[in-house]
Design a protein around this nucleic acid. Structure first.
Lengths: 353, 353
DNA sequence: TCCCAAATCTGAAACGTTACAGGTAGGCTA
DNA sequence: TAGCCTACCTGTAACGTTTCAGATTTGGGA
């Protein structure tokens, strides 16, 4: 009864004030729309929708029902302006380093998780010429995301330091070595390199080379080297160093350089490669040198799509599930935003044959 | 002089009113900050920053200088709330159809253009199980983007119709056939199929098959068929139909099916393929059937990364520059948002050997 | 001298949301 | 009966921007 009277009183009050509230408006419904329909104040509606304790059970149910019925969705700009919360996760990527499907799978993995939340995903690539800090600084200065996911993590990563200092939630694809605990997901490249080298040793290969990550700059390069060296030492084999090409090198250059090396004196009889597309260029170089995979040399590669599986001649392949990495990273930033301790948001995935 | 006096008067007035404006605030500068510094009203500052005609030259210069000095950037939420303009372009993608680097290159191409504008890029993948309309509807209903870029365009595309009716700017990767003029960028798949088939005919191939786009659903499938048929007819060759596999088929299935076909009676001696990764699976199938590329059968493929260039055995390759497509599409939506006529925003790119 | 127009500038209101600081009604205690 | 607590609800202000409807000043013409 009282409620009903209130509502009428309110209608009148509203109607007489400047703007008349038309109910079946073609516009998007707002809190005001619901408030009018329910005969309540917008404050109450706002609280009812987020299950605040000071609102009665019955009212909550009624408000939530109306909201669902008319398809209410909070206006992001309103929320963002008022609270500063953007509901955006930003993926910061290096535009150069595209290891066959890496970016796409990462994006899809992240989206899988975000699609069940109010979060949107924005993608911010930066080119190699630019400072990797630039997009990060932009996001922080303009407050354009609640959390950041980034790759190409370095042992001493300026971005990690900066974001930690500013208290911005983030997760990295790859680990750091700077004594700062932060959320990450990493593929166990040490295990991959170890297993890869082992599989070559088992085939009787004795002079083994590795095509690693962007030299030393990126942390996983160190992991690869660690696993690789361990296997080499254990197997009493010889490591052949090829420091002048890495995953970032153009495929043409990789092919040419491989041909050179494979035509040289001390050529490897086994190669560990950590990128699917580079592997294809390697094969081209090897064959250009007149050698045959499986006979003169064996090749093990990591891949992040399943293309290499069908590649002939046969390459031993370990899979890195980047989509899974995307899911893990998304989950990690979200939970970090919720305040979960960074140490609980660190995960590793293992090479899968 | 007068200016100076005004400023003092204003400072005083402000200072005495409720909120004291502290200058060296650690917060992000807003219009109010500039207004205070310049001794002007926020309205004037807002107008001065966008070169409105009713503001004096001197004032504009002064305001713009201050803005630059203190690194002012408009608050997106404020603008969005007030004007409804999001400064967001949304890329809507099918998560399944990853034709080797397509997504990444598209994203990078778009970003290249957007990075010089106030626009951000959000990515919204949808899975094959879901209705392709769903993300589109979401964007329109929540007003979460000023423009949309989408791929997998169909001859009669519900999304195109919906967006056109709602007056939302968009650009498609691929053409429609529904009599609606809209911005698009397309790779000339007809020319590609024609040239590809021609190159096989020139090698003396007479029974030619094609691995086309997702059957008939997507427009470019028709273009491929048109170009293909034309070449076949002109060359008096025989087209071998393989309707049960297409680019969306899993690589494993493509390989197996290819082996079947190539082991059969009426096997093709030339194949046109429109996806790089599918080509690799094709080769696997061909070799599994005991045949040799270059001797028993020739293969022409489209590719969107340069991986196939180094693939052995040698495949004839035409390049589709998806990054360029991304740039074109981004430019198209932006100009469409500015109100440019759709017919001026339609472009085609040609196969490049 | 007065009036008008042009050139500049102005405050208030509004977009949709949440936080703050209450307000009211009803029931319970003393 | 008074006083107080609890449960529930409320209006106002604020986030930063742009739009609206003026306000003020200046210069010039009559």
């Amino acid at each position: 009864m009282t409620g009903q009277q209130d509502m009428n009183a309110k209608d009148l009050r509203r109607g007489s004030s400047s703007e008349a509230v038309e109910l079946p408006e073609g516009e998007r419904p707002t809190l005001k729309t619901i408030a009018f329909m329910a005969g309540l104040g917008v404050t109450t509606v706002s609280r009812a929708l987020k299950d605040a304790p000071e609102i009665g059970r019955a009212t909550k149910n009624r408000v939530q029902l109306i909201a669902k019925q008319i398809g209410y969705r909070p206006n992001r700009a309103g929320v963002r302006l008022r609270t500063g919360k953007t509901n955006v996760i930003s993926l910061v990527l290096n535009a150069q380093s595209e290891i066959m499907g890496l970016t796409s799978n990462m994006v899809y993995g992240i989206s899988e998780i975000l699609s069940q939340t109010p979060y949107h995903l924005t993608v911010t690539p930066y080119s190699a010429e630019n400072d990797p800090m630039q997009p990060i600084r932009y996001i922080v200065e303009t407050g354009s995301a609640d959390g950041i996911i980034m790759s190409r993590t370095e042992p001493d990563d300026a971005r990690v330091r900066y974001l930690t200092e500013h208290g911005i939630p983030f997760a990295t694809h790859g680990r750091t070595e700077m004594g700062i605990e932060h959320p990450f997901h990493d593929f166990d490249n040490e295990a991959f390199a170890y297993k890869s080298a082992r599989s070559l040793l088992i085939k009787g290969r004795k002079k083994i080379a590795m095509m690693a990550g962007p030299t030393s700059a990126v942390t996983y390069h160190r992991h690869l080297e660690r696993g690789f060296s361990r296997a080499i030492e254990e197997g009493g084999a010889q490591a052949i160093l090829v420091p002048d090409i890495d995953v970032d090198t153009s495929l043409g250059r990789i092919r040419d350089r491989t041909e050179e090396i494979m035509s040289g004196q001390n050529r490897p009889d086994g190669i560990v490669c950590c990128s699917g597309s580079a592997a294809i260029a390697l094969v081209a170089g090897i064959e250009a040198a007149g050698l045959k995979i499986g006979r003169d040399v064996d090749l093990v590669s990591k891949q992040s799509s399943d293309v290499l599986k069908w590649f002939r001649p046969e390459i031993i392949v370990f899979n890195e599930d980047v989509r899974h990495a995307g899911r893990e990273l998304a989950r990690a930033v979200l939970r970090r935003i919720e305040g979960v301790d960074a140490r609980e948001l660190q995960s590793l995935s293992y090479p899968d044959e």
